[in-house]
Design a protein around this nucleic acid. Sequence first.
RNA 1: GCGGUCGUCGUCUAGUUGGUUUAGGACACAAGCCUUCCAAGCUUGCGAUCCCGGGUUCAAAUCCCGGCGACCGCACCA
Length: 586
Amino acid sequence: MTETKTDKFTLINELARRRGFFWQAYEIYGGTAGFVTYGPLGTRLKQNIEKKLRDLFVNKLGIIEIESSIITPGKVFEASGHVGHFKEPMVECSKCNKRFRADHLLEEYARISAAEAEKMSLLEIKEAIKKNAITCPDCGGSFNEPQQFLTMFVTTIGPYSGATGYGRPEAAQGIFVEFNRLYTIARERLPFGVLQIGHALRNEISPRQGLIRLREFTIADLEFFFDPEEPNCHLLKDVENDILPILTAEKRLKGSEEILNITVKDALKQKLISSEWQAFFMAIAKKLLIDLGVPSNKQRFIEKLPWEKAHYSTQSFDQEVLVDRWGWIEVSGHAYRTDYDLKNHMEASGVDLRVYKEYAKPIEEEQLVVKPIMAKLGPVFKAESAKVAELLASVPAEEVMAALEKNGFYQIQNYKILPEHVSISRQKTIVRGKRFIPHVVEPSFGCDRLFYVALEYAYHAKDDRVILRFPRSISPIQVGVYPLVSKDGLVEKAEAVYKLLVMEGFSAEFDDTGSIGRRYARADEAGIQLGITIDYDTLNDDTVTVRDRDSWQQVRASIKDLPELLRRYFMGKINFHELGTLIQNK
RNA sequence: GCGGUCGUCGUCUAGUUGGUUUAGGACACAAGCCUUCCAAGCUUGCGAUCCCGGGUUCAAAUCCCGGCGACCGCACCA
């Protein structure tokens, strides 16, 4: 590991500290692992990335956005299964100090299934280890007391330590618990999606890798609800010919890393992806990463193996990006959560979270109905007649009728029902709709990881200089404004141009120190997209030079046209050369 | 949590067999001069109780112990 000194991770972390993208938090107290502070440039870059997510999902796809709280009552994460799944029983070898998942050991050496092991208490685990004489697979040493590692942050809500609260490990539950209200606000129509971008907390055992694994991080969870009986994605045609680079679970099980480049359409046809909506969002996620500067061939979707999947998911893909230091890292997860979450919250809370959908045409159904005749039942069963009626209602009418016809009576528990006790008729009922729990596909993005890969893919070295070639839509600062030299009134003119651009809504920076070359270099390192320089010609004809960060080419444009030109440039409607006439540099 | 390597101005680092070190340099930054397009130059300035705490010693950035943090490996990453 000698070359790790100058890999991109090291270079980026150094640049990030020096120029104010991000750094480790709480440095003056020695730093705390897993927490970062974003500086001025980083905050802007992160905002621009989040803006990109909003633009893609909220503006273009009509998905609604909410913001819910981070501290969450214990009940929510008990119902969602997180309390059960976010903690792992671990044992440590007393001899070699190696740690193992206790449930994995039991599975392997005691033939206790994963499902069973999950339900076991620490005491039961300890006894099972003893009973099966399980020792350290590495050195044969004995294990000490099993311990639970809960990776959620726990707190108490209120001053008297009454209720347990958890720091949310994902933003998704904040959406599920508000489902009824959100569904109403979305005017009770499926499909619909809800996005939440916010902080989440995971008390990682040992966070490392800088921004890649944090204890407090920004997550963007999108829960997309649809009717499982109408799983078709009406937007599929927009992406059906997009290529998805997929590494399937099947290939992975065979030890293969071979990536299948397959169109969305074919991936669905071959049932590699079980949900159209999931495939759709995977295509969108790929586009997002391209927009952030990660080329298609540096991305892949890797299907999770059964035991790798989250407890709530039937099929999961991780979107991965190739980075210099660690190879493939996950930037987003795509899970088919089915009705798992809503169902659990419905059971735990007792609140109906089903939706009602009217059929296009009401369905007429003929039903056999057994109706107790209370005037007859009363005298026979006295005080118990109400109970008898209730029991009758709970059994299929067909069963009662068949028994009466065959035997002349129907026995239910201790009660003997005779034909004269009931009236049997066929009734027409009109069913106008159905109630069901919507299914959910969830794309979930780690914003800090998006930030890191955007930074890494923007990082370029040219001779001794560093240039951050961000896509223009996420550049933290759009334009720098510079007087060529700091005399003869150029500074004043440049200040006026700077002020104009700021008033027009551009993120701009003014710099008049040092030589012009030094300022360009400084700007390149901060990823400033364009440099606007005020020179002696400006004083004569009110034109300025506009410099492109990536090509270092310059065009000349008139100040009065600048706001409109720049607006169109940053919207991606015109390219750099359309900003003005090219200048031939000596 | 375990093992390994490491921690010196904003950044990168020299120094670490204990002693002319008031801890040196480079870059960056600030002020001034200069400067008509890619980190030019000159002058001046700012900036580190050497991660924190304790110990050994006449003397500690340097040795020892503990803590915190970083990276790598193991484990963990629902």
